[in-house]
Design a protein around this nucleic acid. Sequence first.
DNA 1: ACGAGCGCCTGTCGGC
DNA 2: TGCCGACAGGCGCTCG
Length: 274
Amino acid sequence: MPELPEVETFRRRFLQGADSSPPLVGQQIQGATLLWPGSLAMPSHESFKSRIAGQTIEDIRRRGKFLLFHLSRDVLAVHLRMSGDLWVEEESKPIQKHHRLLFHLEKGMRLVFNDPRKFGRCWLVQDPTPLLAHLGPDPLDESFIPQRFYANLLVRRRQLKPLLLDQRFLAGLGNIYTDEALHIARLHPRTVANTLTRRQAGTLFGAIREVLSEGIQRNGASIDWVYRGGDFQNYFKVYQRAHQPCYTCQTSIQRIVVGQRGTYICPRCQPPPA
DNA sequence: ACGAGCGCCTGTCGGC
DNA sequence: TGCCGACAGGCGCTCG
């Protein structure tokens, strides 16, 4: 499910607090309950429970699609993958079918990791560096500049779509924001990276930033039965708009498959490469 | 270096 | 109504 803007929305929500959920920074984790073993990648169940108890949440950061809870002594890293979700609720609520991991907080509240498809993972580590070592630049980071992006594109012969989805190349884009960015940049997803002109690379750079910023501004996208309060889904230009008219040229949006992923394009605004 | 195929999982939706 | 395949916001692995 979530891509960079959705993960960033979680981060901000937990930092500032929202609705009935208080800010998490400063809260002490009293303990944890693991309901599905596979949701915990590291360390062992026993070690996890004893280590996390008593630690205070000191900061919440993000790297790509990883959400990082900086605790007193460790870092709790969470990757939501396809269907993972996080929220704060009262301990008195019944445990739902897809609750996988519970973090018991103060004042009768708990942080819930809910994940129907069980692809999401949590890690409790002293140092998250090795876990994040393979990630490429964060598109919203100051160090991500057009010159660097163009240089990286120049040495790749992959199609843009799978390349942009590769977290080693850029950390944070997923299927939705990739399709939206390519559409804004008027580039076909099968375009080979090192065939882009400097100008096209600059346009794509701007499109990626634009789409991610707007996603964050709208608190992410909420799709299907996983609802998180964002409304960027109402502003998609191509994603899940097959057979509907392109907002620019009225041509019917097409769904194609690129790199085994469903991909939405305007065949006129984004003509295939020669 | 690159792409395809597949596994990991559960749920929804459309067609018959 | 039930069954069956396609599909789903991700990613790591093997293989050619």
